[in-house]
Structures are given as C-alpha cells and as structure tokens.
C-alpha cells in the first residue's frame, strides 16, 4: 500500500477492528482498513479498490477475493506446533468442515472455496 511509503504521523491507530468501525461510522471524512466481516453491520460504506492504474476498481466480495482481483486480501492462518492431533485436530477439522465454513460465511468473511 502507498507504494511502501510511510503513513502520516497524524493517522489514527485504533486498538481493535470494532473501534475502527465505530469511529468510521461516526467521524466525518474518515477512511479505514478492516476485515470484511466488520462491514456487514453498522454505518460503513465499502469502497472499491484498484490494483494499479490500469485495472478497474474492484468491490471486495466472495468472488473477487477468491480470484485475487481484489488486491488487498489475505488468508487467515491457523498455526500449530507440529501436526494437529487430539483436540487440536478436532478444532482444525471443524474449521475446514462444511459446518465450519458455513459459520465463516455467516460472519461475513470469505470461505476457502
């Protein structure tokens, strides 16, 4: 972002995504960057983003994130020490199961497929 330039020092840093959403919905001319799941509720308008000057601006949604035309998306990692086993494996499998992925979709995030 910003061609790797620094942010201005007067840019606000919020302690949590919910406070970003809170202050965007209240403050004049505010703009922020936060997870897709937070855009579902509240008074937040989602902007379209161009990857570079030659491509069209893209709205973030399930399809544009998965086919990578929306350029500022990232995967969320589950990190384990070694292979997951026992209860860890249960959590891991649940997250990847159809049931788990349905929750991902319900909360406004993008599923793996």
């Amino acid at each position: 972002m910003l061609n790797k330039e620094n942010f201005d020092p007067s840019v606000k840093l919020m302690p949590a995504s919910s406070s970003i959403a809170q202050s965007i919905s209240q403050d004049k001319w505010s703009i922020g960057y936060l997870g897709l799941g937070y855009t579902k509720e509240g008074n937040v308008k989602v902007l379209n983003v161009k990857k570079d000057e030659n491509t069209p601006a893209v709205t973030p949604n399930h399809n544009t994130v998965l086919d990578k035309t929306y350029s500022i998306a990232r995967p969320l990692f589950l990190i384990f020490n070694g292979e997951p086993a026992g209860n860890l494996k249960l959590v891991f499998d649940y997250a990847l199961s159809a049931e788990g992925q349905k929750i991902v979709e319900e909360t406004g995030y993008v599923t793996l497929k």
Partner: peptide, 8 residues
C-alpha cells in the same frame, strides 16, 4: 481506546 493514538 479514546485518544486516537496518532504520534504527533
């Protein structure tokens, strides 16, 4: 939570 945290 409330001061905006801008290091100016």
């Amino acid at each position: 939570m409330v001061t905006g945290n801008a290091p100016v």
